[in-house]
Write a protein that binds this DNA or RNA. Structure first.
Length: 402
DNA sequence: GTCAATTCACATGAAAGAGACCACGGTCTAGTG
DNA sequence: CTAGACCGTGGTCTCTTTCATGTGAATTGACGA
């Protein structure tokens, strides 16, 4: 019976009209043919990279801008065009794109170099080798053939924050040594202040050129959305004012185009699920709420057990009363919770760090306050919307109690 | 009443340890010719 | 003789602990008016 129901469901699903024509255009890895409102930056970048076509080494470049400002998109787009010409003209040039933020991919020195070596056709184990060894392997691959490399390090600030500037220093020094190949580095960062913290030698050689991506304003986001809507949705599906609303939402926090596109996509999905003929403003509102909720739920559910215990302690304490709570109290509750669930107890030092990590994730709000004679502590309050709280609690209870 | 010293309850940093992973090379063992 | 199992060594990486130091204002207590 159920089987039959499913069959029907899938068939209906297949034949159902969708508001989407091609959802791909709304996904974040989609590269449109023309990039709107980034002409200036594209030109700058093209100017910097062009020498590569003549076999010269382009300057190392730093690209700044807030999330969703089109940095990655522009860089990818430009290098892609560059490669097309290079291939046509038979110029030996290679572009390596690495996102330093992706876990277990390139977020440490070892992994970055290992990743690079692998890109050059060396097989490097994910761990076990001395970093030196991996460098050697990488250099060897580099020298095997004369070629210019364009190394794009996306979210480079993550790499440096976590592991220091050692890797960057070594990479910039490759060109000083007498090697066959040359490497140009394009660093992409969300954080403008981040260069302040790195070794001056690295900084000067790394940021020979700088390109800054200002955030989009609401009008520009509208234009971008309109461009994507052409491809993504069927004709006349988008209700009046939807684009504007989407753009307004996204422009509200630093013109994040990625967010605007996600909003639109989720709104479309919601409309689909409700069998609506059009995507309306209400769908946008729902989508905004849903994105927020999903984000938090996902974050909470994927936390390690110890983290969940700490979070549960906070929720537990908060639900009992109105006033805010402090680290010491949370730690006491956490300890007893550990005893109940047979979990090893972490030190207060560690729990303190965990609390501050939750603060960074935006799940809680932890302000450091001084209570004078009565010490210094964090003033903790929960940032999760009322409506989502019960669900979060349920998730935590389920995963802790086992 | 005023002002500097004290004190609390943690925050914050640095360093080092534990344990999970993994590669590599050497040794042992069993199977093969 | 050789392939494969097994072990010890040495490496990375993440999560923790340990030890040390920092911090901001309420409180205290000496001091002077």
């Amino acid at each position: 019976m159920i089987e039959k129901g499913l069959d029907v469901f899938f068939e209906v699903f297949l034949r159902k009209d969708s508001v989407f024509f091609d959802k791909k255009a709304l996904q974040s890895n989609y590269i449109p043919e023309t990039i709107l409102h980034r002409e200036e930056q594209t030109k700058q970048l093209a100017n910097i990279l062009a020498p590569a076509l003549k076999g010269e080494k382009p300057s190392n470049t730093f690209v700044y801008g807030k999330t969703g400002a089109g940095k990655t998109l522009t860089v990818k787009h430009t290098t892609k065009k560059l490669m097309e010409v290079a291939e046509r003209e038979n110029i030996s040039l290679k572009v390596l794109y690495i996102n330093c933020k992706i876990k277990r991919s390139a977020d440490t020195e070892y992994r970055l170099i290992a990743h690079l070596a692998r890109e050059l056709g060396k097989s490097v184990p994910p761990t076990g080798l001395p970093t030196e060894e991996v460098y050697r392997s990488f250099f060897k691959a580099l020298n095997k053939q004369k070629q210019n490399y364009l190394l794009i390090l996306d979210e480079i600030d993550q790499l440096v924050n976590k592991t220091g500037d050692n890797a960057l220093y070594n990479l910039t020094r490759i060109n000083e040594e007498d090697t066959e190949s040359q490497i140009s580095i394009i660093g992409i960062s969300n954080d403008i202040m981040f260069v302040e913290g790195i070794d001056p030698r690295v900084r000067s050689s790394l940021s020979e050129e700088e390109i800054i991506f200002p955030p989009y304003n609401a009008l520009q986001i509208q234009a971008i959305l309109n461009q994507r809507v052409e491809f993504a949705f069927n004709k006349e599906i988008i209700d009046f004012g939807v684009i504007e609303k989407c753009a307004a939402y996204a422009a509200r926090d630093h013109g994040d185009a990625r967010r605007a596109l996600e909003l639109l996509r989720v709104a479309g999905e919601l409309a689909d699920r409700k069998n609506a003929k059009k995507v309306t403003i209400e769908h946008i509102d729902d989508a905004e709420a849903k994105i927020d909720r999903d984000r938090i739920i996902d974050m909470v559910a994927t936390q390690p057990k110890q983290y969940q215990l700490v979070l549960y302690s906070i929720l537990f304490l908060q639900s009992g009363r109105k006033n805010s709570l402090f680290t010491g109290e949370v730690y006491e509750v956490y300890k007893s919770l550990c005893n109940k669930t047979n979990t090893s107890i972490l030190t207060q030092r560690r729990v303190s760090d965990i609390i501050s990590e939750f603060d960074m994730l935006g799940i809680i709000n932890a302000k450091i306050i001084s209570k004078g004679r009565y010490g210094r502590t964090r003033d903790i309050s929960i940032e999760i919307p009322e409506t989502t709280l019960p669900k979060i609690k349920k998730i935590l209870e389920d995963s802790i109690r086992i």
